[in-house]
Nucleic acid binder design. Structure first.
Length: 603
RNA sequence: GCUGCUGUAGCUCAGUGGUAGAGCACUUCCUUGGUAAGGAAGAGGCCAUGGGUUCAAUCCCCAUCAGCAGCUCCA
């Protein structure tokens, strides 16, 4: 799953960008043009302040722009403020932007004169015969295809946001430049709104909430990239696992468990060692044999399939496992729960005949829809077709791709095309969800695989008595528990719906003598498997209310003399300050309904 | 892994070349309170780890580990 960042690369962000990109409000230029021009403005200001600077690329991106720079000294946060000031000055002093078409030789001559080595390389990237343009304002000019705004003294607002390293041309073998990210809008209001959004993103960060709500931890002492689930998040995970278990059993899945450590030879057979070896941890010996920790669950499931002969009547076989896998990730990419070295996939492999492929995929598409909607996610599906390097005959690719399309049609699922984006072993549909902050994530996936059945030489006996090759469908709905639930923390901002909330009910006695009543209710709810806390430690009621609120507990039940006498509870819903007195039985009925329907609301 | 930054109490963070502080949390006592912080006292730190520089290092330098913003790569 990939996260689309506020300053996401334009290749990823094209769709999101186009929506806000139409010129409006009498502005003759689209927002992306403004941002591209502001990146030029920034570059020229940097040039003024750091005369030796060399320039890389400086495009507009989804939420702003960046420019890559080669500077002898590392920039600091405070330097950005100085650059912003200089930008204001330059915009005032030399607002006119001019485009000039030049010959290739002329462009080269000018860049050489300024020793702009990266730009010279960029010049070589422009195909022969294409127009070469230079954009200039004041005494600063840039090799650039444009377009740009006409004047820099138009009314707009910008802010430089952060500094980071970035490889020249995105290639880790090339030098690393310094990248300054910024953003720009036509109105102050929109800029402020965007900055507020960035703040909100920060507040919801699952790592921050993870500490505040006592959800999970990672430990340098225990090793980077390994998640410790605390009781609170354990409850969330448990609820979601049960939900997934039920939904899958309903759809004919059967649950299996496979070992975490397997013979190295098995990964030779599966091809993982060859194709995925860099992601796998070193092997180790047990007696005279080499073993590996599994990076994927597929070989284990194939082992189970291969234990006996299968008839076409057995198929499809839908094998599911919450399979924990371990993969090597470079230290710099680790990120809270989102990018880790050990994680549990809600994995499944469907062994089916080519004829069953379409129906099976349609079933997965339906399951994806059910699950994602339960969490309030909307999503987009992408059909990823045959890449350059692929195994399997064109006919079978054709057939599988057709099955994917057919399944989507059956479920009335619109497909975006991701040409050549398939795995080498088969085509797939990926689902990108949109969270409550409007960010896109790659999550569910359903993939056809012709490779593993071939490698493990598994078959089934068809109705004509012939031995045939089954197709394996790999599918994950949540992806991994770590990444999914990490995303969920941010999606809900720690305010989980009742059914999967860490603690569902807090019971608060007004005075110590009301504890017995609260304890009784606690017991009753707990017998019905509710996660409930009677806050009976000595201390003030107000403090307990504050604590329950801090932990985003959906319901507080406050009980004193009146309630104990009448068998009622004073209910306070998360997010409100009002209380509502009702019979306990009525409250219990509300709970039951919210849990049963997995309601996203508390009413 | 790479570039830059960071690592001080459970959490959030001040601070200093002469062995440390705040708020919240925690403990104890007082307070029995009807809906977002009652009062008082107390405990808690080998200042990430290992080297160096220095009479002296939490502070300066180097390395390691971990984290943060990105890049590259991914569930």
């Amino acid at each position: 799953m990939r996260r689309t960042r506020p300053w996401e690369d334009p290749r990823e962000g094209v769709n999101a960008m186009s929506a806000q990109d139409a010129p409006r409000d009498g502005e003759p230029f689209p927002l992306s043009t403004l941002r591209h021009s502001v990146s030029h403005l920034m570059a020229s200001a940097v040039q003024k302040l750091y005369p030796g600077v060399k320039f890389g690329f400086g495009p507009a991106i989804e939420h702003g722009f960046y420019y890559d720079l080669d500077l002898p000294e590392p920039l600091e946060e405070k330097d950005l403020r100085a650059i912003e000031k200089e930008m204001e000055r330059v915009a005032k002093r030399s607002p006119q932007m001019v485009c000039e078409t030049v010959t290739r030789d002329e462009a080269r001559r000018r860049l050489e004169a300024k020793n702009q080595t990266y730009k010279l390389e960029a010049l070589e990237l422009i195909p022969q015969g294409e127009a070469i343009t230079v954009y200039r304002h004041g005494d600063w000019e840039d090799l650039c295809e444009g377009p740009h705004v006409d004047r820099l003294d138009r009314k707009f607002h910008f802010k430089l946001l952060n500094i980071a390293g970035a490889y020249w041309r995105g290639d880790e073998k090339r030098p690393m430049l310094q990248r300054i990210y910024g953003t720009a809008f036509w109105s102050k209001d929109e800029l402020d709104q965007h900055l507020k959004w960035l703040e909100e993103v920060k507040l919801r960060d699952h790592r921050k909430l993870g500490t505040e709500l006592d959800l999970f931890s990672t430990h340098g002492d225990a090793g980077a990239g390994f998640v410790f689930w605390h009781p609170h998040l354990g409850a969330v995970r448990r609820a979601i696992e049960e939900f997934m278990y039920q939904e899958q059993v309903r759809r004919g899945y059967e649950f299996v468990y496979t070992p975490h450590v397997l013979r190295e030879d098995l990964f030779k057979t599966s091809g993982h060692l060859e194709n995925y070896g860099e992601m796998m941890y070193e092997g180790f010996g047990i007696e005279t044999t080499r073993y590996r920790v599994k990076p994927m669950n597929c070989p284990g499931h194939v082992m189970i399939y291969a234990t006996r002969a299968h008839s076409y009547r057995d198929l499809p076989l839908r094998m599911a496992e919450l399979g924990t896998v371990y993969r090597f990730e470079r230290s710099g990419v680790l990120h809270g729960m989102m990018r880790v070295r050990g994680f549990t996939q809600d994995d499944s492999h469907i062994f089916c005949t080519p004829d069953q492929l379409e129906t099976e995929i349609a079933g997965v598409v339906e399951l994806v829809d059910t699950v994602l909607r339960t969490f309030g996610y909307t999503y987009t599906a992408y059909l990823a077709t045959r890449p350059e390097k692929a195994i399997g005959s064109p006919e079978i690719w054709e057939r599988a791709t057709k099955a994917l399309r057919g399944a989507a049609e059956l479920r009335q699922l619109p497909l975006e095309l991701d040409e050549g984006g398939g795995a080498f072993y088969g085509p797939k549909i990926d689902f990108k969800i949109k969270d409550s902050l409007g960010r896109e994530w790659q999550m569910s996936t359903v993939q056809c695989d012709f490779n593993l059945p071939e490698r493990f030489d598994i078959h089934f006996t068809d109705s004509d008595g012939q031995q045939k090759r089954p197709i394996m469908v790999h599918r994950a709905i949540l992806g991994s528990m770590e990444r999914f639930i990490g995303g969920l923390i941010e999606h809900f901002a720690g305010k989980f719906p009742l059914w999967c909330a860490p603690k569902q009910v807090a019971l608060i006695p007004i005075r110590e003598e009301h504890t017995a009543y609260c304890k009784k209710l606690e017991h009753e709810l707990r017998q019905d498997l509710y996660r409930v806390d009677c806050m009976d430690a000595p201390g003030h009621m107000n403090n307990k209310i504050k604590e329950a609120q801090h932990f985003q507990i959906p319901f507080m039940l406050i009980a004193g003399e009146r309630e104990a006498a009448e068998g009622t509870v004073a209910v306070r819903r998360r997010g409100t300050r009002e209380q509502q007195v009702m019979p306990f039985s009525e409250f219990k009925a509300l709970l039951d309904r919210l849990r049963k329907t997995r309601s996203l609301e508390l009413v």
